[in-house]
C-alpha cells in the first residue's frame, strides 16, 4: 500500500536537555486513521510538531515519498482568533494562501456547514461553547482540503457527551473526505473507537512500544463499543501500557 509519510528513527532532545522522543519509526498509509497513544508527557505532541515541520528532529527524519502533503493541524485548544468571527477564522488558511476573500468566505461557509455550524457564521468564538469552538477549529482545518490531518488531543478538554458526538462527526468527515488522520490521544477507548492503527508510545522519552492493527470492524458506530472485540483490544492495549509504566 502506498504511504503518505514515513517517520525514520525520529528522535528529539530539547535544548534544555529533555529527551522527548527516542528512535521512532513508522509508516503512515494514505487515507488511514492512525492513533498515537501514550501517557501525558511522552512526546506525542512533539511527534506531531516534527511531522508538521514546526520543529526539527535531533536525529532521523520525516520523509514524504510523494512530496509534502497539504496539512491540517488541530490543537488541544480550539486556538481561534478571538477577534474574528467563526467564518473569518475558518477562511484564514485560504486567505493566507491568496484565495480571493469572496471565494474564501464561500468555502468557509461550506466547511462550517460540514461541521454542523451553518447558523453560526458570524458568531465570535467567545459566543460559542467549547464543543462548537472545536468544530470551528475542525472546519478551519478542513477548508484547505488537507491530505493529512494532525490532531493533538483535540477533544481532551470536552465533556464526555460532546466528545462522543465529535468523535462520530470526525469519523463521518474522514469517510467523506478521505484524508489521513494522525490522532494523538491518551484515551485508550477513544483510540480503539476511532482508529485503524494504533501506535503506542512508552513513557518519556517516547519509544514505539507496539503497532497495533485495530481488529474492531468498520463502520464504527456507537454500538461497536459493546462488541467483545472492542473490549478485548482495549484491554490488550492497557496491558501493554501498564506493563511498561510499572517496570
Amino acid at each position: 500500500m502506498s504511504h503518505d509519510l514515513r517517520l525514520e528513527r525520529l528522535a528529539k532532545t530539547f535544548p534544555n536537555g529533555t529527551a522527548a522522543l527516542h528512535d521512532l519509526s513508522a509508516e503512515i498509509d494514505s487515507g488511514a486513521f492512525f492513533s498515537l497513544l501514550g501517557s501525558s508527557g511522552c512526546g506525542k505532541s512533539t511527534v506531531l510538531r516534527l511531522i508538521a515541520g514546526l520543529d526539527v528532529p535531533t536525529h532521523g527524519r520525516v520523509v514524504w515519498p510523494q512530496g509534502l502533503a497539504r496539512l491540517g493541524f488541530i490543537f488541544q485548544e480550539p486556538t481561534l482568533m478571538a477577534w474574528a468571527s467563526a467564518i473569518c477564522n475558518v477562511a484564514l488558511p485560504l486567505e493566507l494562501a491568496g484565495v480571493p476573500v469572496r471565494d474564501a468566505r464561500a468555502r468557509a461557509a461550506e466547511a462550517l456547514a460540514q461541521v454542523g455550524l451553518s447558523g453560526f457564521t458570524t458568531a465570535l468564538p467567545r459566543e460559542l461553547s467549547g464543543g462548537m469552538q472545536m468544530r470551528v477549529s475542525i472546519a478551519r482545518a478542513l477548508v484547505a482540503q488537507p491530505q493529512v490531518l494532525l490532531m493533538d488531543e483535540p477533544f481532551a478538554a470536552l465533556d464526555e457527551l460532546t466528545r462522543g458526538r465529535l468523535n462520530d462527526d470526525l469519523l463521518r468527515l474522514w469517510s467523506e473526505c478521505r484524508f489521513s488522520v494522525i490522532f494523538v490521544t491518551h484515551s485508550v477507548f477513544e483510540a480503539v473507537y476511532l482508529s485503524q492503527r494504533i501506535l503506542i508510545l512508552s513513557a518519556r522519552p517516547g519509544r514505539l512500544l507496539a503497532d497495533i492493527q485495530n481488529p474492531v470492524p468498520s463502520p464504527r458506530t456507537p454500538e461497536v463499543r459493546l462488541l467483545p472485540v472492542f473490549n478485548a483490544t482495549a484491554r490488550d492495549i492497557l496491558a501493554i501500557l501498564e506493563d511498561r509504566v510499572t517496570c
Partner: peptide, 29 residues
C-alpha cells in the same frame, strides 16, 4: 500572542506582513 496560533500561521506559510496584520497586531491590541 498565542504560540499555537503563531504555529498555525507558520503551518500555512503566512508571510511577515500577513502575520503582522492578521495575528500580531489584533492579538496585542
Amino acid at each position: 500572542v498565542d504560540p499555537n496560533l503563531r504555529d498555525l500561521f507558520r503551518l500555512y506559510h503566512a508571510g511577515f506582513w500577513q502575520t503582522l496584520r492578521r495575528l500580531q497586531i489584533p492579538s496585542s491590541l
